[in-house]
Design a protein around this nucleic acid. Structure first.
Lengths: 176, 176
DNA sequence: ATACTATGAACGATCGTTCGTTCAATATTG
DNA sequence: CAATATTGAACGAACGATCGTTCATAGTAT
């Protein structure tokens, strides 16, 4: 997809059609307009989160699950296309309410699962008592995605960050 | 500035000129083109970081300094314009190398100062031993900026997040 | 008179979208 | 079964709008 190479606003509808292998006119038979293409794409992102939801719902010890999730999500974010597409959607979300809602909904699935895991860990004493597990879940994702962004920008492979990311996140939730 | 309202690519040169109170043609006497306007703007962001550098270089106990920095930076990020402009520059940086370099340089000033503070805290036992203080500094900023972004998107005031953000960050660096 | 800045009309390019047309597949006839 | 009618996907030329940029002209201060 060419949103990745040129960005949403830089990409013409002709580019999209050509890349998709359909004609300009035909694209409008499948999508109601350029905006709709972005919406459908944001929807696709939701499916990509499914493997992570599965990981998070495992019944293993919470710290083990968290560690596995961090590894898997970091691996997903090691692919620059995934990072750039997320950034693209994020920056559109600021100004387009329907994109914002999609983004928030997608995000909520992940944070809810992660938050539940954190809560479960706290209950059995594996994690410290968090003032707001949902917030903590958000911030864990932010750390991962932020690192992925810096990885793309500075052209340092995400793998180089993996260690300190895992260390940072675990330290913030493990009991003192 | 109208980059904030409509985004860089959505904003026409005519909008920029009108908002700046100069004529279309005259704008080209001050900037070499639209891209140059963005570059100059990214440069302005650097100055805005100065107060935070000052805070970080204070000689008080490291945890106190860190806490003060978090509060100040969170307050800065409580202004949506600041968040949106940062996001705007971030998403341009992915595809425009000169913006990327500016962004990285601006960022480096902050992370270096913060990293030095973390190191200082570790040396006197106020902070735990961090595997990579620079990385940790990056992630601390990511947590703050990520929360600010969610605050803008979900229209929840940043202030509501301040508590758990501070808790999260401190927990990740304080000794266990 | 000279050297500047300021102006907005004009330019070519490209934007997102529309629309008339083609055409192969399907349904309906006789 | 053959002939005809109907459908809807595919196409790309064309449209009006807007894009970033240029430039001839007008204004201003020295």
């Amino acid at each position: 997809m060419c949103f990745l190479e040129r960005g949403y606003h830089q990409t013409g509808v002709r580019d999209i059609a050509a890349r998709a292998g359909v004609s300009l006119g035909n694209l409008y038979n499948h999508f109601s307009g350029k905006h709709d293409v972005l919406v459908k794409f944001a929807m696709l992102e939701r499916q990509e989160m499914e493997p992570f939801l599965k990981i998070l719902s495992a019944h293993s010890p919470a710290p083990k699950v968290l560690e596995k999730f961090i590894g898997a999500y970091a691996k997903y974010l090691a692919v620059p296309e995934n990072v750039i597409l997320t950034l693209e959607v994020s920056s559109e979300a600021v100004r387009q309410p329907d994109i914002a809602q999609l983004f928030i909904e997608n995000r909520a699935e992940l944070t809810n699962s992660l938050s539940t895991l954190l809560q479960r860990g706290t209950d059995v004493g594996d994690f410290r008592k968090l003032p707001d597990p949902t917030q903590a879940a958000q911030m864990i994702l932010d750390v991962l995605e932020g690192s992925a962004y810096h990885s793309v920008l500075s052209e340092v492979p995400m793998r180089k960050f993996a260690g300190s990311v895992k260390d940072f996140i675990l330290s913030s939730v493990l009991p003192r």
